[in-house]
């Protein structure tokens, strides 16, 4: 089953809904097995916006200041995706092996309470390791 908006994407949850519907277990699941209007899960009701003379639309104060990537899709649809801009001096943080180290470090910090380290002790351990 494909998205009705012709993007040719088959959302995986549709397979489950269709299976339930086929077994006649759930009316709601049967209804959900119909092709969706769009494969993008909506979290707000659609709104109609008119583009102003200078080509601008307002999309809400909560997005003020955000950087958005604008893509034009088939059928005249437009897709806005929030993005971040990264200074050139920080691009290394997105490259391997740094990126994976940072992710692991942040995950560790999230799971571990802060504890003070004795710097002299850690340095001594590093020096002992060199002598081995």
């Amino acid at each position: 089953m494909r998205c009705a908006s012709s993007c040719n994407y088959a959302p995986p949850w549709l397979e489950l809904s269709r299976a339930f519907a086929a077994q006649g277990k759930d009316d709601r699941a049967r209804a959900e097995s119909r092709p969706p209007a769009s494969c993008y899960p909506a979290i707000m009701h659609p709104e109609i916006k008119r583009v102003g003379q200078s080509g601008q639309i307002s999309i809400g104060r909560e997005l003020a200041g955000k950087l958005l990537r604008l893509e034009q899709l088939e059928g005249g649809r437009l897709l806005l995706t929030p993005v971040v801009d990264v200074p050139e001096s920080q691009l290394w943080t997105l490259r391997e092996p740094h990126k994976a180290r940072i992710e692991r470090g942040l995950a560790w910090a999230a799971a571990t309470p802060a504890k003070e380290t004795d710097v002299a002790d850690v340095v001594a351990r590093a020096k002992r390791r060199k002598k081995r």
Binding site: V119, V122, V123, R125
Partner: peptide
Amino acid sequence: RLDLNSPEFREVFLRLEGADL
């Protein structure tokens, strides 16, 4: 107060050589 207990920090730190360390 310094927390240097992250395994990602330690792994590299303990392998630093002379001047870098």
